[in-house]
Design a binder for these strands. Structure first.
Length: 653
DNA sequence: ATAGGGTTAG
């Protein structure tokens, strides 16, 4: 090949020596079979590599290795590098097997060296790894930037920032590598993954040359830390913004609970002519899920479908859409997406199960779980959270116990504190407060806020101020600033008329400088605009009409047997005053507005920032019957579908 | 070959 190459390697041979032209042709003919041979070898290599990719045990790898030797590729660094990497992946000790593979190659390239160095490193033989790095240098092979990239990658995998720093020093010592773009980028990534964002930033600032990857790495790091200000400042300075960088911003805002900004960035991204892919879509879909607005939900779904990443063929987009529609209150749409998907994985099932549970369709959720385990998709910890939540919302204590027991026995999943929290929730809601308390006190790990919070919540349903105080004591330690716990405890005391205790809790809140969140409800208008209602607030332009509509509703409800639940007012005031306060609750204002502005037969959808109170719940039940409409309320916990006087939660929330 | 992604309960 080298001989042939030299024969027509210069232009002069072609143009100035005519009698060589025929030689050229002959040479070309000779090249063709060689070329084919090369293609064949390439094909063979890639076949062997993909079969190595499919290996997950030593025996399979050894078979492929035998095949490699039979085909005469026992000196091919490309394939053997892969072999060593696969052996590393399944944790085969570097000595002796991978080491032997390495030794048998006469001309080792830097990739092969690096594979072995990385292998030793990942298996904890740091010294061997460093000494190999020394031998490599003595043999005059590198290091190449790739070696450092691999080593930094290894550092970030084992989160060893100390060694990372030493290697960083090496890159400067050896000379030149600290300014290499690849090395720099992997260094940034290493520091960032190890939690040293500032060091990553320093590397970035000192790099003589940066590319969009360097920028994006840092943007993501700032976003993950919750510092969107720094992230967006960097992004603004980025000269060439590509798809990944834009997506990092969209997703960053989503992950920091800023859905409107995420959607804004997505729109600017589209306006800049950057194409959308599935990763971007997933970020925006999550943002729409947080917004909870059906209008946006349909908007992004359309975009997904038009861009060729629709839910039918794309399992990730599909799963995100299921979650989004559930959180927008459109559980039917969520189910239609689920049904239409060609492929479903554990995310799709878990999202659907959680969605059904959130909407009070517990039996459907449990049924879906049983359907799921008949398929090849194995449930994971999140799936169990979903199905246990479902049990708890309909009070299926026995079924919940069985499922909980089956986690470890049938699926090899050790219950986590969160799963215990579900069980405690299930028991305490069902009225077994003592048993729930005992489980919280005997569970194998320290109970977290979720566990005590479940008990506290159930104490309101079952009017048990003593256990409530006990749970609250734990909560005040674990979450001293979570205002909801204080309010809940005070409401529990209020509901049984222990006003002294109510005052004590209020005083505690005051001492800690905690202020009650005002209740707030909102509705999506016909054009997608948001109408917001604060408790007791009459600043809406149509508040006179709203007040009148609410009064009409109240009169009709009373005529139908509704009696206001006065214990929902946590103040020690007259019954008359209690009656008045109840009618200022924000969800009632929103309901009256909904009655005024939507046409008959149309579902009224209300969102609320706090948990719906008992009286409003009762009121909604009655209203759904009287006006003959479905009312959907999303409170901070879950969805309530009120239809013909009955709520999907079975008065159990 | 170094950058971006979906489900979590009170």
């Amino acid at each position: 090949m080298a001989v042939l190459g030299s024969k027509f390697s210069t232009a002069s041979s072609l143009f100035f020596v005519p009698n060589q032209f025929t030689q050229q042709l002959k040479a070309a003919e000779a090249v063709v079979p060689l070329y084919e041979l090369r293609q064949q070898k390439k094909l063979l290599e890639s076949q062997l590599i993909s079969s190595l990719d499919g290996c997950n045990n030593l025996l399979q790898i050894k078979q492929v290795h035998a095949n490699v030797i039979r085909k005469g590729l026992d000196q091919c660094c490309y394939v053997l590098t892969k072999l060593i990497r696969v052996l590393t992946k399944i944790n085969v000790p570097m000595d002796p097997y991978p080491r032997l593979v390495f030794e048998q190659v006469k001309y080792k390239n830097p990739f092969l060296w690096t594979a072995l160095i990385r292998g030793y490193f990942l298996q904890g033989s740091l010294r061997e790894s460093i000494s190999l790095y020394g031998s490599m240098r003595r043999e005059g092979i590198g290091p190449v930037s790739f070696t450092f990239s691999a080593l930094f990658k290894a550092c970030s995998e084992v989160l060893d920032v100390c060694l990372g720093r030493q290697l960083h020093a090496q890159t400067i010592l050896v000379g030149g590598f600290a300014s290499d773009l690849y090395v720099g980028n992997t260094m940034i990534d290493m520091y960032v993954r190890c939690g040293s964002l500032d060091c990553g930033r320093k590397v970035f600032d000192e790099m003589p040359e940066r590319d969009v990857i360097s920028w994006t790495e840092l943007i993501v790091a700032y976003a993950k830390k919750g510092d969107m200000k720094s992230a967006s400042r960097l992004f603004d300075g980025l000269p060439l913004k590509d798809k990944v960088a834009w997506t990092a911003m969209v997703t960053g805002y989503t992950q920091n609970a800023k859905p409107r900004e995420a959607i804004e960035y997505f729109e600017s991204m589209q306006n800049s002519g950057i194409e959308t892919d599935e990763v971007t879509l997933v970020g925006v879909i999550s943002a729409c899920a947080q917004l909870g607005a059906v209008k946006y939900a349909n908007w992004i779904r359309d975009i997904a479908e038009r861009s060729g990443f629709g839910p039918i063929n794309n399992v990730v987009v599909g799963s995100a859409l299921i979650d989004m529609y559930s959180k927008c209150g459109a559980i039917e749409d969520a189910y239609r997406v689920f049904e239409g998907m060609k492929e479903r994985n554990v995310f799709s099932y878990s999202s659907m199960i959680l969605g059904l549970a959130m909407h009070g369709r517990a039996h459907a959720a449990i049924q879906l779980f049983h359907d799921m385990v008949k398929t090849e998709t194995k449930p994971n910890r999140v799936t169990f959270i979903g199905v246990l939540t479902a049990c708890s919302h309909v009070g299926l204590v026995e079924q919940g116990r069985q499922l909980f027991a089956s986690m470890e026995k049938c699926y090899g999943i050790a219950p986590s504190a969160d799963h215990y929290a579900c069980m405690v929730d299930l028991l305490s809601r069902a009225g077994c407060l003592e048993e729930a308390l005992e489980l919280a006190q005997t569970m194998p790990m320290e109970p977290h806020g979720g566990v005590w919070g479940a008990i506290l919540g159930a104490c309101q349903i079952h009017r048990n101020p003593d256990i409530a105080q006990l749970a609250a004591n734990h909560l005040f330690e674990l979450e001293p600033h979570a205002i909801g716990n204080y309010i809940l405890l005070s409401n529990i005391y209020a509901s049984v008329g222990r006003w002294n205790n109510v005052l004590r809790v209020r005083k505690l809140m005051k001492e800690k400088g905690l202020k009650k969140n005002p209740g707030c409800s909102w509705m999506e208008g016909k054009k997608g605009e948001i109408h917001e209602f604060l408790a007791g607030d009459l600043t809406h332009p149509r508040s006179i009409e709203i007040k009148q509509a609410l009064q009409d509703l109240l009169d009709r409800l009373r005529a139908n047997g509704y009696q206001p639940n006065l214990s929902s007012v946590p103040y020690d005031v007259s019954d008359e005053e209690k009656n008045r306060i109840l009618m200022t609750h924000s969800e009632k204002l929103a309901l009256a507005f909904g009655v005024l502005t939507t046409s008959a037969g149309c579902t009224i959808r209300i969102m609320k920032n706090l948990r719906i109170c008992e009286d409003c719940h009762l009121f909604m039940c009655g209203a759904s019957e009287i006006i003959g409409r479905e009312i959907v309320v999303r409170d901070n916990m879950r969805f309530h579908h009120f239809r013909e006087g009955i709520c999907s939660c079975g008065n159990f929330w």
